[in-house]
Design a protein around this nucleic acid. Structure first.
Lengths: 239, 239
DNA sequence: TCTGAAATACTGGTATACCAAAATATCGGT
DNA sequence: ACCGATATTTTGGTATACCAGTATTTCAGA
């Protein structure tokens, strides 16, 4: 097998009882990680046979894995039904961020009403972890993952599992560019300030202010991500 | 084949160039219609082999169709991975409606800013069609479909295709109960009033008011749907 | 009659073979 | 050297066979 085992655990192992996953889910997880880490860059063709042999499974589960990633928006199809790694335009990314803004604002409002004190405390703790991790810059992936957890924790605290699902699905499309953005120093600084506001509003259980803070945060993310993308393109053009 | 051909066209044929769909998409469309019209009631087991022979395809595309419906939330899996028609609780339905509220409110705001005059006019026209159709009560399915089109048109007018996708996906879960609710006279009356408000706010391009109106409309839908469900359960219990 | 364990049937998961359409390569004519 | 038509290869779509769990039935024992 070409891939190290831990690439599949990029997002942490949340399954309490580890029911052995099907080969399809397994392959999907591997491919997802490869796409998000740009081992399979945007635009890459994903021929079923080659991937199947590369991952050591047959076409059937591999095909299912690709369909799964397509439903998450990480994979798209050509007119001739050939799958390839999605390459969203900046406009599409902004569209998704607008959606996330609305979803997280709703989640924040609901969390102010329904979250337990423990949940709010957990959110506060995650934010502190982000602050500490970003001070020493050796493992940014951990800090980034904690940032994602922070947002997911807010959504989870809304007490609306369906909202959490939709949010997670939409977030998958944004993971890659968010990771990119998280490596900008300027992005991390604005993020830090805004996280403080969000936590404060949540702890005060001020629903309308939490919604405003989260919307603002996502708007800032729009700017940061756009800058990160243009900076990256600039770097690539210079080579 | 057990099914009439037109059951597959429940949602209208929006594809301009009719690229012949795969058997999987075909089967998915058929199953979707059967679920929404309760020919396959909530909780029904969906054994791959039986369905495949019933629809005249092999397991491979049928299986893919089921996975597709599962990603839409119309199908769920038991712990032993057996698929069955989803049977959402009232709480889950309310959760989805909250999400729709946030999404449509966002869409309304964006539509006020970005929609063309033609798009707004189209929305106004759809609303008039609903009013006319609901006067003569012979074809409620048409009126209901127009109602769905009305909401989709608002989302489409937002100029955010990704938002339209997420909205459509989330709407699939609600279709069945919304159809149920649309058959209540009281529901239709409150809907009628609120639609007027929405159209007025949209035509005035008053973003914040449009958002308020749409949120209100979805809140009302919550109440109406809950009433429709409890009334239906009452009727069933009386038998 | 009831219980529980063994036998049976059934189900989803997987591998594989084959097909038609699409993409690519080949090659003859200009 | 370029172009277009034809031959070849590659691709996704589909059908099918087989396997390992899971559910169901059967039936012996109390």
């Amino acid at each position: 097998m070409a891939l190290s085992a831990d690439i599949k655990n990029l997002f942490g192992d949340n399954s309490v009882i580890t029911r052995s996953p099907s080969l399809a889910e397994d392959a999907a997880q591997t491919l997802r990680a490869m796409i998000l880490l740009e081992k399979l860059p945007p635009g890459t063709a994903l021929p079923e046979r080659d991937l199947a042999t590369a991952l050591g499974v047959s076409r059937t589960p591999l095909r299912e894995a690709i369909r799964l990633l397509a439903s998450e928006g990480l994979v798209q199809y050509t007119a001739a039904r050939r799958p390839f790694v999605a390459d969203p335009s900046i406009a599409e990314i902004k569209n998704c961020l607008r959606i996330q803004g609305a979803l997280e604002a709703l989640a924040g409002q609901l969390a102010c009403e329904y979250a337990t004190d423990q949940e709010l405390e957990h959110i506060e703790q995650l934010n502190k972890q982000i602050l500490m991790a970003s001070t020493d810059g050796d493992d940014r992936l951990t800090a980034f993952r904690t940032d994602m957890d922070f947002h997911c924790a807010i959504v989870a605290a809304s007490g609306n599992p369906q909202l959490a699902e939709v949010h997670a699905a939409n977030n998958a499309r944004l993971w890659r560019v968010r990771f990119l953005s998280s490596q900008r120093t300027a992005s991390r600084q604005s993020t830090r300030r805004e996280h403080e506001n969000i936590v404060a509003s949540l702890l005060a259980r001020n629903a309308s202010q939490t919604a405003i803070d989260l919307r603002q945060h996502l708007t800032t993310a729009e700017t940061n991500i756009e800058l990160a993308i243009t900076e990256k393109k600039q770097t690539q053009a210079d080579e």
